[in-house]
Amino acid sequence: MIAPAGVQALQVLTVLFAAPLVSGVTSHVEARFQGRRGPRVLQPYYDLAKLFRKETVVPEGSSWVFLAGPVVAFGCYLIVPLLIPVLTTYGLPLGYMGDILGGGMVLALGGFATALAASDSGAPYAQLGASRATTFGALIEPTVLFVVFIVAMITSTDLPYALAATVRSSSEAVRPSHVLVAVAFFLVVLADTGRIPVETHSGTIEFGMIDEARALEHSGAPFALTKWGSAIKQLVLYTILINVFVAPWGLASSGKVLDVLVAVLSLVGKALLLGVIFALIDNSFSKLRLFKITEYLAAAFLLACLGVLVFYVGGA
């Protein structure tokens, strides 16, 4: 048996150490789809190790905010796995510290810290990235709110554990509102992790850069933290999508060592599968023009909105 506090720590550690693997596998698969050999699956770990050994260069005129930003963001992204069902079906001691909105706020705080650091660097591209990320973040927000509304209406709570339990118990029939909300959240994850319809996550094309541009001025250990942080954020969003909305199966229902081990492996497996799907999407669509992104986000909002209407008014 593993004590609940231990399982809780394990949730954070799983996300912490599996995140680069998910990124690595995704970019490897993506390269394979394009007929390239692609980077090694473990390349993100090597990158991080290299960056941690490098010296840190700070732009002239920037203050402590520039160095604190990546650390704060990294911390924020690590708090969220405490709140969501990463490994267990039952709530852990700190799991009720915050609901979905709380988790969303902590994630947004991380984004805010990164944006602040980017603005403090004084570099135009970093500031442009920060400004764009904040603007599109504000446009994503209504969709996320409606997603939370639907969760709240389906389960009468706003705890992610409750929705996962509802999904598990009603496997024989799928609620239309639940399908809509899952698709809407999928689109949000696609936008929030800087994937193809919104942003090319690997290239450095100035015109289309959003998230990538924010970290341009960082170097050394803070840059490593930024990269690692965005990998963690990606895995956290994947986990929410998988373990709350789409496939909350394979989670541990007790603290037994075997159960927890299975949960860790199934989480990583499901996240890798989702990563492959995202790589497929990356290769099948072209990037939207910056001013067309609002239409993409409007589509996500439409789905969430219809979900609320269908549930609230139609009772389905």
């Binding site: 009468s156 009603s170 029939a173 799928v174 609620r175 239309p176 809509l180 219809l306 269908v310 389905a316």
Partner: peptide, 25 residues
């Protein structure tokens, strides 16, 4: 909160929603 709809009912709802979404498209 109503009962979970049956397979046919939710299928019909999803089909109608698809029609609505095509309309938006």
């Amino acid at each position: 909160m109503g009962p979970v709809p049956s397979g046919y009912a939710s299928g019909a709802d999803i089909a109608a929603l698809l029609v609505l979404l095509t309309e938006f498209a």
